[in-house]
Design a protein around this nucleic acid. Sequence first.
DNA 1: GAGTGGTCTAGACCACTGT
DNA 2: CAGTGGTCTAGACCACTCC
Lengths: 262, 262
Amino acid sequence: MAKAYERIADELRESIRAGELKPGDRLPSETKLAEDHRRSVPTIRDALRLLQDEGLIEKLHGRGNFVRKARTRVLRTNDRHQWEKDRAREPEAKRLETGSTEHDTGLEVDDLVFHASYRETKADKEIAEALGVPEGSALVERSYRTRYAAETAPFALVTSYLIRALVESNPDLLDAANEPWPGGTQNQLLSVGIELDRIEERVTARPPTPEEAEELELPPGTSVLLLRKTSFDLNDRVVEMSDVTLPGDRTEMLFTTPLERW
Amino acid sequence: MAKAYERIADELRESIRAGELKPGDRLPSETKLAEDHRRSVPTIRDALRLLQDEGLIEKLHGRGNFVRKARTRVLRTNDRHQWEKDRAREPEAKRLETGSTEHDTGLEVDDLVFHASYRETKADKEIAEALGVPEGSALVERSYRTRYAAETAPFALVTSYLIRALVESNPDLLDAANEPWPGGTQNQLLSVGIELDRIEERVTARPPTPEEAEELELPPGTSVLLLRKTSFDLNDRVVEMSDVTLPGDRTEMLFTTPLERW
DNA sequence: GAGTGGTCTAGACCACTGT
DNA sequence: CAGTGGTCTAGACCACTCC
């Protein structure tokens, strides 16, 4: 025999999937649902929590419970890397026009708000391994937040690591005041004589930590995508590594793999 | 003033992050926690549910609440596509040895259990658009489940779509009895004269549906990765499309993007 | 059988939203 | 102000695990 709160959740889920309850619709109040199903309010709330955890409904205090609407997605492609490499050697005037985020989103520079901060650190075990340097090596840790001007939450949390010894010959690379840097990271690396050979991106997913949920303004019932991007130079050395946290309900990543001809 | 259940959750989360409570450790019983914090048991349970939703703890009925251990990850790379393309033209004996899943996981064929089923359908609006065919076109819908022999849950749910008109010249492609097909999908397509030019993969993440959680044996507090793979032939036609659902807590996807030289 | 978490109740009181 | 969901209590009873 199935549990009451599961049966009630199943019923509501079915109504939502069938389209009887459409995105934006208000569900009956919790007391109303309790009467209808002849159950106590806490039992109803158990059912609604299941639906919330699945991302199907949104609970708004004082207003009601609503079927969740899909959020508009931000597309992030891997051809941005080649695009950024090409762009890195353009004259500064050209580089100022657009960054890779604008390339992805098709937006103007003015539609986006950009924030960067730099910090000097030493590599812990995990980061050292990812960068292929000894533990304790001096690093430049750079933190980026980009959001739509019309919104309050950023659409990505980015932490990027550079190996200080590789970039310190250009002091401009140690100062966040030079951000946003026209031409992006690949132009920064070019300024110290580094050319990239390839980029590796590792992707996983999990529920957000409370801190991530807070900063990305994620409602309950959403996931985050974790992207670790590693850049290799022509000598197969790791020259940069970034950890990116993206909201799962509004991010779509597109990777294109070209194949050699037979 | 913070809510009691949040404060209790914060305290426990901190203990876990600090390593005072290690993966596998049992938390104090709910009644014990209630006494310690001078709160009712339901309030403690509210706190523990937060931690469960974050994927930090595992609730085991009759045994206790435990700090969750990380599961071993399955790596899925995008160089599998080129590998599979090369493999598609090898003689059958060679193709029988390993499939792309074994290529990714480094396992033997015997370590994996494979299941396939075919079904003929018509393209609904969404699928038709993805395949670039008219709505209602005849399709071959193929469903795959692969799991470790030692485990009960598959590590991926795959639904693949072929356009019937493109493949029906080889009747073997309409029969699941020929699975696992030596050489995989690219060899199947070769048998009807199709060569692939590139593969596009779109990735998003969200909490699992109850059905996905059931089939993948996902504990609460995990996400799924959704991968839509689209294969294009030399004429830029879509010739195959797959939707893949992967457990977020045990899947890592690796995409390598090579860059052209300056 | 002792100890654990899971389901469910009935209700008090608080906090937020709208009119 | 009425109506909504959010927090919390105190306790009954069930189901599972392990000794």
